Simulated assay, not measured.
Amino acid sequence: MKFTSPHRTPAFFATLLLTLTVGLTGARAQAPAAQPQIITVQPARMGSSVTIGGTVVAHKQVTLTAQIPGRVEFIAGKEGDHFKKDDVLVTIDDDQLLAMRRQAVAQYNNALAEIQQAQVMFQREIISPRTRSITGMPGFGLPGLFDQMFVRPMQSFMPGTIGGNPEFERYSDLYTQNVRLREAYNRLYAAQSKIEEIDAKLRDTRSFAPFDGVIVKKYVEVGDTVQPGQPLVEYADLTYLQVKADVPTRLMPGLKVGMMVPARIDVGNQVVQARVAQIYPAADPQRHTVTVKFDLPQGVKGGPGMYAEVMIPDVAAPVNTVPVIPDTAVIWRGSLPAVYVVGKDGKPHLRLVRLGDFVAPGQVSVLSGLRIGERIYATPPQVTLGWSEKPE
């Protein structure tokens, strides 16, 4: 018996592996290429729809305006910059307000000192009435002392009101001191209210982001002088977009909040399903239209201000049966659509068609050029020179 040398075994397996690899590669090269899928044009029942032009808007958008006059000192960024809720977007010069606040604080402190003095005087009038003080008259108090020793004891023997009424004088003095105390408190409250008013204006010197979003448009620059009510920036949340359109009143019976309608976005000619989000309660008396907002799916390319179209069903029109094909079967030459039809010879033939509205995501109706039951290529088997898979 003859044995193979163990030193030749690795080389033998390497040769065998190389042979198998070459064989598999050749088998792949000889495998037939995948054939384009051929489908049959299907029918679909659909009513007539009307295409209405609209504008893409942000779900949340605000215009921040100046609340006080002054000079713009700070702007947080430029158009397209992102910010978090409560971030400072714009600040206005507050030097004058700070000076007014210092003045109001000084008035507050003065009123507080007047309250303390009025309280002392009121307590003094209670404990040591002015009518009994011997220091109320000059001359070492001798006139007052003479008055208390000789004149006042004889008042009860005098007729009428001669000599005055000591009890009433004491009541009058107490009332006067109490009024002064209340006036001091009122001045304190007025100074405190002035400080609160200035603090509110100081808060108005800064414009905060009401939610997470981006600056859409700037109306001012640093150094500009603004007046109350003047726009500063437009701020929006672009996470969710909507289409805002004015729909004729005759089409309103076909719309309900929550229903889905096809929409076409100008960017990339995207066709998506939009949800009816809001229907305004009143119509425009001049144009006889109703404003309707449609929610777009999250992640749709585009932004506020772009053109969009929505297909509104016309419930008054009759329902027809139309051919429906996948939009992947359509190729374009400029704005002319066409499809590859399987001819009688089994070969693809290019045929121009006229497209209607989308009946479902990825499914478009054909108004002319195709009949129900014809066979077409789901994807173009070839792209003829001058044609493309997307409209221009």
Rank of each mutant, 00 (worst) to 15 (best):
Lys2Ser: 09
Pro10Lys: 06
Ala33Leu: 14
Ala33Ser: 14
Gln37Thr: 15
Gly53Gln: 07
Lys60Trp: 08
Leu64Phe: 02
Arg71Met: 12
Glu73Ile: 06
Phe74Gly: 04
Gly77Trp: 06
His82Gly: 00
Asp86Asn: 13
Leu89Asn: 02
Leu89Cys: 09
Leu89Thr: 10
Val90Ser: 04
Ala104Met: 08
Gln107Ile: 03
Tyr108His: 07
Ala113Ser: 11
Arg124Gln: 14
Ile134His: 13
Gly136Val: 07
Phe140Ala: 15
Gly141Pro: 07
Gly144Leu: 09
Met149Tyr: 03
Gln155Cys: 01
Phe157Tyr: 13
Phe157His: 14
Pro159Ile: 05
Pro159His: 09
Thr161Tyr: 09
Ile162Asn: 10
Asp173Leu: 02
Leu174Phe: 06
Leu174Arg: 10
Val179Met: 08
Leu181Arg: 14
Leu181Gln: 09
Leu181His: 11
Asn186Pro: 06
Arg187Cys: 07
Lys201Glu: 14
Leu202His: 07
Asp204Ser: 15
Ser207Trp: 00
Ile215Pro: 03
Lys218His: 05
Glu221Lys: 10
Asp224Phe: 00
Val226Gly: 01
Gln227His: 08
Gly229Leu: 07
Leu232Gln: 02
Leu241Glu: 07
Ala245Gly: 10
Val247Gln: 04
Thr249Ser: 08
Arg250Cys: 01
Met252Gln: 12
Leu255Gly: 02
Met259Gln: 10
Ile265Ser: 02
Asp266His: 03
Gln286Thr: 13
Pro297Ser: 06
Gln298Ile: 11
Pro313Phe: 01
Val315Cys: 04
Val315Phe: 00
Asp327Arg: 11
Thr328Tyr: 12
Ile331Gln: 15
Leu336Met: 12
Ala338Gly: 12
Asp345Trp: 12
Gly346Trp: 11
Gly356Cys: 10
Ser368Asp: 09
Gly373Val: 14
Gly373Ala: 05
Tyr377Leu: 04
Thr379Leu: 11
Pro381Arg: 01
Gly386Asp: 14
